[in-house]
Amino acid sequence: MLLQNIIHCGNAFDLFKKVEDESVVLIVCDSPYGVTKNDWDRILSIQDFNLDLIRCFTPKLKDGGALYLFGKPDCLDFIDYRPFLNLRSRIVCYQPSRLAQGRLNYTNNYDVIHYFIKGKRPKSYNLDAIHVAQLVKIEHRRRCENVPSVRHGQYSRTKFNEDGKNPGDVWGDIKQLTYQSKELVSREALNTIQKPEKLIERIILASSDPGDLVLDPFAGVGTCPVVCKRHGRNFIAFEMKAEFVSIAEERLASLDTGQQILGFSYGT
């Protein structure tokens, strides 16, 4: 069993073998997308690559454990993942500030996060921890609840919650990172590697509980481990690039001192 709460420098497919079976509650997989010219992103078939990942992940998850697999809209096309995990949702991560690069087609303004579970029922789904603001006025919603077809129909248990609503499967409320983001620690990580902490936080709060073990097989600059540590989750993380491991370790250490790693101190 690999040591917990540290970032292991190495190849994920080699390190998977050292993770104990049925020990992980949540896997947050921001793996290569196969769409850039970066060496680490050159993949012959992203579909075959992701199916190999799913095969590796399945025995490591506890029953009811969750996998959140990041990618482009076609990253699971024409592969059969059903013998391994159950796909619960395709979450659209809307990024409207992307440059309008399309000249002969519509610009791609979203990525997809595929939410899988092992088995039929999630081990954890903490909706109260991830509520977002209601988009309708309370008075209007309460009037709707009093309509007879709602009050006595199949949606009779759907009530207005003053703490907020379910975030749904289109996430447009989390601002993507830019060169001006205080959270960004490396220009090299922008858009391809570093995700917003709020995005990872929503996943971790929803699909794990304090003390659970979270696996991050492509840790990059350590956002998932940082969020895990902040919220009392244990983690095992892998990253091939030693420079990124150093950045991630400093981010983790900064939580103990109360200092935030800002700006472009690292990378190019």
Rank of each mutant, 00 (worst) to 15 (best):
M1T: 13
M1C: 06
H8Y: 02
G10S: 09
N11R: 14
D14T: 12
K18C: 10
P32L: 12
T36G: 07
R42L: 13
I43G: 01
L44H: 10
I46T: 06
N50G: 12
L51T: 07
L53S: 00
C56D: 10
P59V: 10
L61Y: 03
L61R: 04
K62A: 05
G65Q: 03
F70A: 05
F70V: 04
P73S: 12
D74S: 13
F78M: 12
F78A: 15
Y81K: 05
Y81V: 07
R82T: 15
R88F: 07
Y94S: 06
Q95D: 08
P96S: 08
R98Y: 15
G102I: 05
R103N: 13
Y110V: 10
V112S: 09
R121K: 14
P122D: 06
S124P: 02
Y125H: 09
N126G: 06
L127R: 04
D128I: 09
I130V: 14
H131G: 02
H131A: 06
V132Y: 05
Q134D: 12
V150E: 06
R151W: 10
G153H: 14
Y155G: 03
K159P: 04
F160A: 04
F160I: 01
N161G: 11
K165S: 12
P167F: 01
K175H: 11
K175E: 13
Y179P: 00
S181T: 02
K182S: 12
V185I: 09
S186G: 14
R187F: 04
K198P: 05
K198D: 11
I200H: 03
I204F: 00
L205M: 10
S208Y: 13
L215I: 08
F218I: 00
G220R: 00
V221M: 03
H231D: 00
I236K: 03
A242K: 11
S246L: 11
I247F: 01
R251N: 07
D256K: 06
D256E: 14
G258V: 03
G258D: 07
G258Q: 09
S265P: 00
S265T: 01
Y266H: 12
G267T: 14
G267D: 14
